[in-house]
Amino acid sequence: MASLKELFDYQKFGHNPRLDALIRDTESRYSMTLGLDDLELVNAAGSPDMPRKSSLKDNSDK
């Protein structure tokens, strides 16, 4: 039986329209690129308090 990873990889070949729609929907909500501040958080270990940002697209300090 195919794993989830295998199925999604196959989707990159098969392009099932229903799955494509779900993927596009997710992509519309999330920028695929992390800003510099967010990249630092990826490397931070055990940080329990995540800074709140009003918008993912707004990565500049005000």
């Binding site: 779900l22 997710t26 999330y30 695929m32 992390l34 958080l41 990826v42 995540m50 940002k53 993912l56």
Partner: peptide
């Protein structure tokens, strides 16, 4: 979808989705 299709790590996703 972010993890298995886009290949992002859970740590990256946690930041994008604003959760620990």
């Amino acid at each position: 979808i972010l993890h298995y299709y886009k290949g992002l790590q859970l740590k990256e996703i946690s930041i994008m989705m604003k959760m620990s």
